[in-house]
Design a protein around this nucleic acid. Structure first.
Lengths: 346, 346
DNA sequence: CTGAAAGCGCTTACAG
DNA sequence: CTGAAAGCGCTTACAG
């Protein structure tokens, strides 16, 4: 009869609020809140009434309001400081996302993928983290230039790294494989098979995996009294491997063994070697690194170092959970061993 | 001198608050807030003082608090109801993410990728959206079984679809290509090139792109008085294309033309045909669909229908922005035309 | 088990 | 241009 809105009715536009639920259920806001969140210290009668009201109103808690007081968001960011093309072309990331999602699902956490190349995108991503959109972050492929480790440490945001961070490696939790050992093993394998002129296609100098694998290779070369000057760099992509292999062939035509720091780059190297008429492994033996499926399907199949990527990702997720749940757990590091997988290429 | 904490000092733990910024700058919270958000109606003097205080305290606004009142989060979800393996193996998604991110970046929106196969993951994703973690959603590869269109409509969450939704197609904004026309064109091309027994490898029956392309193919076959019984289904993956092609060859050994509903499936078909000793296009002509880069690199390169994926993704982002900014803009649909790209396979 | 009250940290009319 | 005040929607001691 009146033009005034009915104050007691649920708000016509917008989502229902806890207040409305409580009113409909005939309890206080506090009790409604308890009933909705687990229901400890709530009578059966109240719980049922609240559940019913929730259903009838289609109530969903306002996350912003809840976060404001609980300081939790229920989501975790998987941070990938790489251009999206690379993220989508390297199976490493798919596997990582898959496993991380599985582990965090058990705690009912939503995984949110943040992909950003350098520059403005990275700034926005940091702001996202700084604003606490997520309860924590797992950083997966970080570079010397990016400041994620610095930022996360100073933010105090729970975080874990997959791959040893450049700085603060004793202030954040991380998992990695022993890349120095892996680099060494690759070089030794080539030595043992009788290669006289062993080169390497190393990973990016701004990633610890790149640097560490190269370091291992150098150690083994030095130990065996071999020259360690046949070094080219790639960016962990097929194209990068192609370019590096061409360069190697041009500068060191006598090369008869190449330790490549990733399977994808090794694939590129195989292409170039094939185009150059060099047989693998007879003329040039090749080792890869990662063992991510592509290694089995290449021609010839790659002898490579297998990283337990699923285990690493799962462990990184667990390290994060420990911080999320255990309060201020001390940073931990977990290092896995790579294992040599012999196939046909070396 | 006292054990009591100094009440006027910035809170020792946790982030600085607007209150502290205001106090340090010597202004009210309201003025500090205005200075931080754009700075209209703020004196130069106040602005400088606030900026300075922000810097000195390392202040970051609490997003939950801000969202609670503005009802904005500053982020947008790219929703992909697919298992992660598929997302990472199909270049379509990489391209889409790339373009969407670029367009939304201009409005300073963070794109958050939500990937979830059916089941529990999907539930969690819906809850994420329902809780308004994001200001809007772009849904990219949706299936009949998933209820994203229903849910988003009833949520009232600003959204746009890439690919015509199954239901509510007049209640949400969407972009698509004219898949019926594309299916028709593929069939006609094969007819014109003289194929007598034309088959198709259709996409999933639970995706509109699959259904529409098949429908177009059937129309053209009917128009030409050809039989339309040689139909196999795939799931838009290479493996799916292989299986479907094998089936086709077994059931219709006389097939001499195949319209395949995606490039990835066409790749699988090429493999199977090659293994079966059928020359392409001489024995069997093959068309793909999408033109996503793999089409150029296949052997032989694929004749295919090119979808303007970047334009579609950009348009979808713009449709979402229109809703975000224009209030309750009416839902809009934008349909692009596919264009035939002739290469060697047909 | 329950409710009144305080408070999370911000923005935004409103009045000056 | 500025500040006091209200309010966004929740959770959580606290007292009963």
């Amino acid at each position: 009869m009146s033009d005034e809105p009915d104050v007691d009715a649920p708000s016509p536009r917008g989502a229902a609020t806890l207040d409305e639920v409580a009113r409909l259920a005939g309890v206080s806001r506090a009790t409604a809140s308890r009933a909705i969140n687990g229901g400890s210290r709530v009578s059966e009668r109240a719980r049922v009434a609240v559940d019913d009201a929730v259903r009838r109103l289609g109530y969903t808690p306002n996350l912003a309001a809840r976060s404001l007081v609980t300081r939790r968001t229920g989501s975790v960011a998987l941070v990938v400081p790489e251009p999206d093309e690379r993220v989508f072309s390297d199976p490493f990331f798919a596997r990582t996302l898959h496993v991380v999602t599985r582990v965090l699902s058990e705690r009912d956490l939503q995984v949110v993928l943040l992909i950003a190349g350098p520059g403005e995108q990275e700034e926005r991503m940091l702001r996202y983290l700084r604003n606490r959109h997520s309860d924590g972050a797992i950083v997966v492929s970080h570079h010397r230039r990016d400041s994620f480790a610095d930022q996360l440490v100073s933010l105090g945001l729970p975080a874990s790294f997959i791959g040893r961070p450049w700085r603060h490696d004793d202030e954040v939790s991380w998992v990695d494989t022993d890349n120095v050992a892996g680099g060494r093993e690759a070089a030794r394998l080539l030595q043992e098979r009788g290669c006289r002129r062993i080169a390497t296609i190393a990973g990016p100098a701004d990633m610890t995996a790149g640097v560490d694998r190269l370091e291992g290779w150098r150690q083994a070369m030095a130990d065996a009294g071999h020259a360690d000057d046949a070094v080219a760099r790639g960016d962990f992509t097929i194209e990068g491997g192609e370019a590096a292999c061409k360069q190697l062939l041009a500068e060191h035509p006598d090369v008869d063994g190449i330790a490549v720091a990733s399977d994808l780059m090794a694939l590129g190297a195989l292409r170039v070697l094939s185009a150059a008429g060099r047989r693998v492994p007879d003329d040039v033996a090749v080792t890869g690194y990662d063992d991510l499926g592509v290694a089995e399907r290449s021609d010839p199949p790659l002898t490579t170092l297998s990283n337990p990527i699923s285990e690493m990702a799962a462990e990184a997720a667990r390290l994060l959970l420990a911080q999320l749940e255990g309060g201020s757990a001390a940073p931990r590091r977990v290092v896995f061993a790579p294992t040599l997988v012999r196939r046909a290429s070396a």
